[in-house]
Design a protein around this nucleic acid. Structure first.
Length: 425
RNA sequence: GGAGAGAUGGCAGAGUGGUCGAUUGCGGCGGUCUUGAAAACCGUUGUACCGUGAGGUACCGGGGGUUCGAAUCCCUCUCUCUCCGCCA
């Protein structure tokens, strides 16, 4: 979320920047400035009177000790009005504070200056492409047919056990999942990421910290009995490791990676978008997260984009990298690069990674700060994260792109992770 | 699920109505000493908000109450730990 003082000092900038995200911030910003000013006035009034009350209280303590009972009761009388005024100011302050907090979470993050204007997916900028689009043999099949033919994934079984969007992976299908997870984690470790295994259920404070709450609870599965949420991405628990934390500047950037299952309700999706592995309620993903110095966070972003690019390169998948336009970006992001791989039988691009710099937007909510050497005050850090990578669509692309009349060719980098299996027959 | 204990500053751990933002120890930082280091000694060491500043206000798990005054008393919620039960 945006800092209130920042909004007050830069109202025009906020309005202008959020217009790129197609968000009209004028009314909210105006209200914020008005309330913020009033809140400061009220705070000043309340604190001045509290200082008086505190002083009188001390005097009373002294007078009691000296046995001057008449003065004591006179002093007590003086506090009656003071206390009432303080109560009034505090009530007003609290009301304004609540109102400000509600307004504050309505404002999206400001997009970076690199973000192109635009409405939706069609306005995203392609900044890089790589790999070769394969020419498929006669009778090439989409991944859901291949998955059934080679007995890799049982969608029907998942429906029986749970419902649509919860496939059961079997045999080499299960194995290629495990191979990808291990490959991704090993690669991340070599890049200096610390591997962690986070909880899959998070509390409300964590959901708020990374921006899923209060607005997007519809995206997450919720356990009402204990008021816990199934994570939609490891980003939530991993980033919340750093909630209410002050780190040392010399330790930045802090690089963390985690594999987790991810759970998304995906209400409202239908049709070809949810066919096969295209969109699931439960899927596997390896996530990378960085905590960075504000001056260096765009270096971190580049580092992460380069790294994700190296993964799709190593897997030999045709890909492109998009810089998302204002209209297609998430609420919390300042700059996002999406990675898409070519799904040769479906003949469409599938998003497999989204790498974002949130700048101070999450960190402000998280109260994640860093301290420079010496005795300077702590300041708010920057957070970034990215998928590296999400599995299902990678599996879909491998099945489709690597199909041959003899079977599915396993990408070379995965063969050691598949017990030497080079082709699924 | 049953029973009990507890929540205080980076950590450990005092404090049971007034001068307590909070004794002390450890850790951290600065200094003296030393060829250097250790030890010893001295000093320093939370966060947020308001204020140009001096300074002020708040925070002892969260919320509410009693009181001129609450870390301290009362109510309530949450969480943690221990023991028993169950169990991967």
């Amino acid at each position: 979320m945006l800092n209130l003082k920042f909004i007050q000092d830069n109202p025009e900038l906020v309005i202008e920047k959020l217009a790129v995200k197609r968000f009209d911030a004028r009314a909210i910003v105006g209200k914020v400035i008005e309330l913020y000013k009033r809140r400061n006035e009220v705070q000043n009034d309340a604190e001045t009177q509290k200082a008086d009350l505190n002083r009188i209280s001390k005097e009373i303590g002294q007078l009691v000790k000296e046995g001057k009972l008449l003065e004591v009761s006179l002093a007590k009388e003086r506090t009656v009005l003071l206390k009432e005024q303080i109560r009034n100011f505090e009530t007003e302050f609290d009301n304004i504070d609540v109102e400000l907090a509600q307004l504050q979470v309505l404002l999206p993050n400001l997009p970076s200056s690199l973000v192109p204007a635009g409405k939706g997916a069609e306005d995203n900028e392609i900044v890089a492409t790589g790999g070769n689009i394969p020419v498929l043999p006669e009778g090439a099949k989409p991944h859901w047919e291949l998955a059934t033919q080679y007995n890799l994934i049982d969608f029907e079984l998942g429906v029986k056990i749970t419902g649509a969007g919860f496939p059961v992976y079997k045999g080499f299908g299960a194995r290629i999942q495990r191979a990808l997870i291990n490959f991704f984690l090993d690669q991340a470790r070599e890049q200096g990421y610390l591997e962690v295994q986070p909880p899959y259920l998070v509390n409300e404070a964590s959901g708020f910290g990374t921006g899923q709450l209060p607005d997007k609870e519809g995206q997450m599965y919720h356990d009402a009995t204990d008021n816990l949420f199934l994570i939609p991405t490891a980003e939530v628990p991993v980033t919340n490791i750093f909630r209410d934390v002050i780190v040392e500047a010399k330790d930045l950037p802090i690089k963390t990676t985690a594999y987790s299952a991810c759970f998304r309700r995906e209400a409202g999706s239908y049709g070809k978008d949810v066919r096969g592995l295209n969109r699931l309620h439960q899927f596997d993903k390896v996530e990378i997260v960085q905590i960075a110095h504000p001056d260096k966070s765009y270096d971190s972003l580049k580092d992460m984009v380069d790294y994700v690019q190296s993964l799709v390169e190593k897997l030999g998948l045709p890909y492109r990298i998009l810089r998302l336009c204002g209209g297609d970006m998430s609420f919390t992001s300042a700059l996002t690069y999406d990675f898409e791989v070519w799904s040769a039988a479906q003949e469409r691009w599938l998003e497999v990674s989204s790498v974002s710099n949130f700048e101070s937007f999450q960190a402000t909510r998280l109260k994640l700060r860093f301290r420079e050497e010496g005795r300077s005050k702590p300041s708010v850090a920057h957070t970034l994260n990215g998928s590296a990578l999400a599995l299902p669509r990678i599996v879909a692309a491998i099945l489709e792109n690597c199909q041959t009349p003899d079977g599915i060719l396993i990408p070379k980098v995965l063969v050691p992770y598949m017990g030497g299996c080079e082709i699924i027959r």
